[in-house]
Amino acid sequence: MNRSKTNVAVGAFVALGIVALAFMALKVGNLVSFDSAEGYRLEARFDNIGGLRVRAPVKSAGVVVGRVEDIRLDRDTYEAVAQLRIRPEYRFSADTIGAIVTSGLLGEQYLSLDAGGDSLYLKDGERIIKTQSAIVLEKLIGQFLYNKAAESSGDKK
């Protein structure tokens, strides 16, 4: 094979690889998301985090604003402590409510932030006070059955 033809073919091959990588970065993956070192940290405590995992998205009004960076258990209070990394361009009021929500019926769990009306904003390292734990299906069902049982026994009287 002609040498220059070979060079052209290999050049095109490498270029195609770069295009594919760009496609991976921009269209398939979220390179533009942000580096984990960027942004500020918030902390949120929950009685139960359910299926929330490290790297799960933090969303506000459905928009991804950050990620869960770390999850651990407080040894004294037995609360789950989630460390969040929020993008610098988003600020949240001090009375923001953090809740663990499931996307769809069986989708992944994410942390939802509902901004409040406070004029003070949460700063790096501060804590989201108001939180709502994950809904655990078994507990929900158990509660429902208990209520039903209570209702029916009330009807009989």
């Binding site: 970065a25 993956g29 998301s33 790297r55 998205p57 991804v64």
Partner: peptide, 9 residues
């Protein structure tokens, strides 16, 4: 939302 460039790609 689910594919991370650094961790996955």
């Amino acid at each position: 939302a689910s594919v991370d460039f650094r961790l996955d790609v």
